[in-house]
Each structure stands twice: as C-alpha cells, then as structure tokens.
Design a protein around this nucleic acid. Structure first.
Lengths: 347, 347
DNA sequence: ATGAAAGCGCTAACAC
DNA sequence: GTGTTAGCGCTTTCAT
C-alpha cells in the first residue's frame, strides 16, 4: 500500500483541463462558472477524493482560522464539558471548530496551550484561567482584534470579556435558605487555593448572608478543600469542633461529593447541607442535597455569543456576563435538631 | 485602539536587518547562527511579539498539521471527557493539540466534522462512531497514511484500529456475580438502538453468563433505554412483569442513573443491581451499586499509543485493543429475597 | 554563517 | 466564463 499523495487543486485542474482558479471558483461558489465545467470539476473532485487544504486557504485569505481555542483546567470534569457543548452548539452555525486542551490548572501549561492556539491563528480564544496565571501576554493579540473571553473566572492582567456564574448571590441564597431553616452555625468548605476567584466570591456570598441574618462570622467554620478526599477530611474536621456546625455549605461539585460521601460514611443525616453545583443522582441521595445549581451550557452559550459579537465588530468595552444560578431545594437542608449547643445558644 | 497587523517573519527580519531565513533558522534551531544574530533576533521577536504562523509553516513543510481530530457523541458526558484527557496526556509529549467536536450521535454531523478535520490535515483522526454512520469515505485518507482510530465502538465500512472496553467479558462477569448470589431472573436494560455495538456486545455477555449458569434466556427480561427517563420507565416495566426479575443489569452509565433513580423512588431496595460503568458517589448510594467499571483514561491512552505507533511507521494490519473492565462489588448485588416466584422456581 | 530564489496550496486582482 | 499573475508566511535548496 503506497502512501498516495493527497491531491491538490492543481491536480483537479489538470484532470479536468481547466485552470486552478476555475476549480477554486466552483468549489467556493465564487465567480460564475458554466454548468458543464461545474459538473466536470465536481466529478473530478469526487474521483480524486480531493479535499481542499484549509490551512492553505486561510493563509492566503489572511483572516484568522475558523477555529476557537478553548482552555479548561480538566477535560474530565463534566462542568467544563457541558460548557464546551453549549459553546459548540452556538458556534456551529458559523462554521467554527473547537480546539480544546487542558491546562491541568497549571499556569505554565495554560500558557503553552494558549500560545499554540495563537500560533494557529484561532478566531476566538476562550480560557478558564488557571490559578496564578497572568494573561498580560494576550494584550497584543487582543489589541490586534482577537476576541478573548474568560470563563468561570476573570483573567488576570488583561481586561477582557468574562462569563461567570452568579457566585455571590447564589451562595447568599443558599446560605440564607439554611438560616431560614433555623441554622445558626453553618460551616463553609470552599475550593482551594483560598484566593481563587470562585472561592472568594462564594465566601463573600456566605458572609453577606450571615450578615443579613445578623449572625456572627466565625473563622473556625470556614475551610477549604481540593478534591474529594480533602473535602471529606474537612467535613470531619468541622464536625469535630467543640461547637460544631449544624449545617454545611460545599463550595463546588467536587467538594460537594466529598462532603456527601463523608456525611454518609459518618451516618450524619442530621447535618444539613447545601452545595454549589448540582450533583448527578442528587434526588436519589439520602438526604437529597439542596443545591445552588449552575448552568454550564448557558455559560458556554453566553461566551460564544459574546465572542461572536466581537467578531462581528462589537468594539464596546469589556463586559462581564453573569449567568444566574438556581436554588434547588431538596431534603438535605432540613432544620437543625436541638442539640445542647444550639439549645445553649438559643438560651 | 487600531487593530495592529500581526508581525510576520519578514517584519522581524527587517527589524534586525537580516534575511527571513536567518530568523527562521534561529527560531527553529535549524542551521548555524552566530550568537550575536541569535541574540538580536530573539530580542526583536520579543519586542514585536512575533508569533510564527503554524499554518504557513505546515503548508510549506507539507506534512500534516500537529493536531489530532477527535469526534465524540457528547462533550458533556464525562466518559468521553476522561477519554480525551487520557489521550491528551499521552499526546502532549509529541506536541499534538486536540481538535474536538461533538457529533451529537448524528452520522451527518459526524461526517461534516470529520471532513473539516481532514481539511485541516490533522495528524491523527479519532472517532467514536455515531450509530448508523458509515466510514467508507475515510479509506482514501487512511490509505494516504492518516492514522484512524475508532473508540468505544468499531467503525463501519473501514478496517481501522479500534479501542474498546471488554464489554462482553465485563458483563459476563457482572451477571455471573448476580447468578452466584442466587439470582435466577435477571433483567437487562441495554442502551439503544438495539443494534448499537456496545448494546450487542454487552447483551452477548449477558447471554453467555446465563448460558454458563444453565439459566434460560427470557426475552421478556431484556429491554433498552436511551436517557435517564426511559431507563426509569424500563425499570418500572420489568419490575411489573408477572414473573419479575430479582436483579437488574444496567447497560451504561446513563441507563444506570435512571435505574438507580427509579429503584430509589419505588423504594425497591430488594432488587439487586449491577451497572456497566461506575457512577459518581456510587459508594454513598443505598444500596451502593456493584459495577463493571470501564477505564476511560486508559482507553484514551491506548488509542493515543496506537495512533502514535502508526505515525511512527507501524504498517501492520488494523488491530483492536481491548481495555479491561473491572468488577467492583458493592452492596447492591445482594442475594434475592425468597419470593413466591423464586420459591416456585426453586421447587 | 548568511542570503536569494523558488515554491507549498490556495485565492485576490486583474486581465481577456 | 475563464486564465494569468502575484502573493499569503513560511521553509527548502542552493549559493556565497
């Protein structure tokens, strides 16, 4: 089996006995062409199995490639997968293809990946910023007209469009719900590192809810985790406090899974729980977790729409789109049992 | 803010006062270059923010682009996301970037996506075939040296490398486990359509396990579902039979979620369950599902390794790599309660 | 150690 | 309606 060279425009032209430009015209429905040549060109294309080289085309046309570069921290996390899906659905109509890669939450890898996207002359760049990354190096490409959109978290060192969930108000709502159920001591297990945007925003929502309820902010009740195991450990730690919380708030989907697992193992059905991000099979768990659900597909769509508007010439200043979260009340956010601690507090 | 033109090699050359080729040499560490020119070129590159145009490079070099095209049926399904992650980890060392798109399980969309990948001259093409798709059109590119690997399901109309889970033996093992627990009537809820490769293979494993145990194959116990809701309905249907199953086997992760949810809603903890694919938070569910776990990351890695070997000149005939599944026994596969039906059967 | 010219596969701009 | 020429940004080849 010899590796046959892929046919080019010129090969097709030769086959038909016309010029390359004519073939190009037929294929791109550019200028006019007689029905007959049209026919014959198409036949030759089919016969040779010709496939236009998009790279060559793009290079000549000079415009950007019809791809969208997307950097996420983790391909296996369904949250980002669903974001990508929403994005793709919105982009398909424009003939844009997704270039996708994982930064593994590592700024260096994010940078390398971004650079190869730039080298490919993507039409649009979408980035879920890795913690600690600086995006100053995107200033020039952005100034040159490349739409840049940050997802889930704002970028650093660069003012660009950004699409995030309503972290603060979402958490506020979730925590207020716990307060309304009668909880006075509510633990917060955020993501890590503590300076991560989502962590800060969500913690702010937690604090504002406490404040609104006239409840004190107790640092001992606030911790963080990265991954299911550390979230489980954090749960154990909070529940082991001298004056333990009667309810917990979990700061993202992974943390939530760790907390749910640990509460189940410890058979602590008495501890109320609200999580950020919905969980698969949530309604089946006992108790079923009350959640502040994000809408990842909507995030992807919003990002796509924003970027396409830029591509279409929108030169207004960078804006932040906030995609609303939704509180889904299930069984896990029940009122506190009256323990000695809470009885004391009430007294 | 004027849209500054992106600098080219020639711009850098002009800035330094050397020829384009010299700049090219420095950047690619091709031929020799004096330390001084090197220095000055690098400085100019940094100053102008020059970014080589990969498309232009590839076009001249003639080889394929350093991208890998991957087509999956659903970006939001973590199974495929994890496959992609495993793949990417293996590819990164070779400087390959992932082009990823969703076919939405639609042959037409799969074809369009594949064609744009071909037009981009990807180095490798990876496809999770949509049901009903025919891949004959990939013969020519494959003959021309493009490594093609099918994932999860074999391709149709084209003999190419393929990486699949050990569907048949995995299910055999899972069903045999139920048999060993004393179950005699085991329902099978596969995926749909019924002719889908994974469905057929898994059903074959079910039948072979029954046969090995000397149990009859009862068509009434075999059904299928697509999506969580229909899986729940199928569960209800099977359990409503005159002579209902005491155990169920769920044919994939989505079906599994529907079955778990329905069993929970119906409070049927007496029904044993084994699922294909592990579930998030499985250990926390009550009862915790026994599963035949796939290893999606390993599938991605195996696919990547196979394709890279082809890229490196491996011309041996197409092979199928089978990635082993693993039976994880949890609480859901308990022995049957003695019901009248089973007592009759035993008598 | 460096440069000039030619060309990768395609299309823009102008012929005719 | 079709062909010619030039050139996108880069690298190859061959000089120097």
């Amino acid at each position: 089996m010899t590796a046959t060279r892929r046919p080019t425009l010129a090969d097709v032209a030769r086959e038909v006995g016309v010029s390359a430009k004519t073939v190009s015209r037929v294929l791109n429905e550019d200028g006019p062409s007689s029905p007959q040549t049209r026919e014959r060109v198409l036949a030759a294309v089919a016969k040779l199995g010709f496939q236009p080289n998009l790279m060559a085309r793009n290079i000549r046309v000079g415009g950007p490639d019809t791809t969208v570069g997307l950097v996420v921290p983790d391909l296996g996390n369904p949250f980002f997968g669903t974001v990508a899906g929403g994005m793709e659905d919105t982009m398909r109509g424009r003939g844009l293809t997704l270039l996708m890669g994982s930064s593994a939450e590592d700024p260096e890898r994010e940078r390398v990946l971004t650079q190869t996207f730039l080298a490919r002359r993507v039409s649009i760049l979408m980035v879920v910023p890795a913690y600690g990354a600086d995006h100053g190096y995107l200033k020039a490409p952005r100034a040159a007209g490349l739409p840049v959109v940050f997802l889930d978290r704002p970028g650093v060192g660069l003012s660009a469009d950004c699409v995030v969930s309503s972290n603060r108000t979402g958490v506020h709502e979730g925590v207020s719900h716990l307060v309304a159920q009668g909880h006075r001591r509510i633990g917060f297990i955020g993501d890590l590192p503590a300076k991560l945007y989502t962590r800060r925003e969500r913690l702010a929502g937690y604090r504002s809810a406490l404040e609104a309820a006239g409840l004190p902010y107790d640092r001992a009740l606030v911790t963080g985790a990265h991954g299911q195991e550390t979230a489980a450990a954090a749960t154990t730690e909070l529940l082991g406090l001298a004056d333990p919380p009667t309810a917990l708030f979990a700061g993202n989907n992974i943390v939530a899974m760790g907390v749910v697992a640990q509460l189940a193992r410890a058979a602590r059905k008495d501890v109320a729980l609200v999580t950020f991000d919905d969980l698969p099979l949530a309604e089946v768990l006992e108790p079923a977790p009350t959640v502040v659900a994000q809408d990842p597909a909507a995030i992807g769509e919003a990002a796509a729409r924003t970027a396409l508007a830029r591509l279409d010439g929108d030169r207004s200043r960078a804006r932040t789109v906030t995609v609303p979260t939704r509180l889904i009340v299930r069984g896990s956010s029940r009122p506190p049992r009256r323990t000695r601690a809470s009885a004391d507090a009430d007294g």
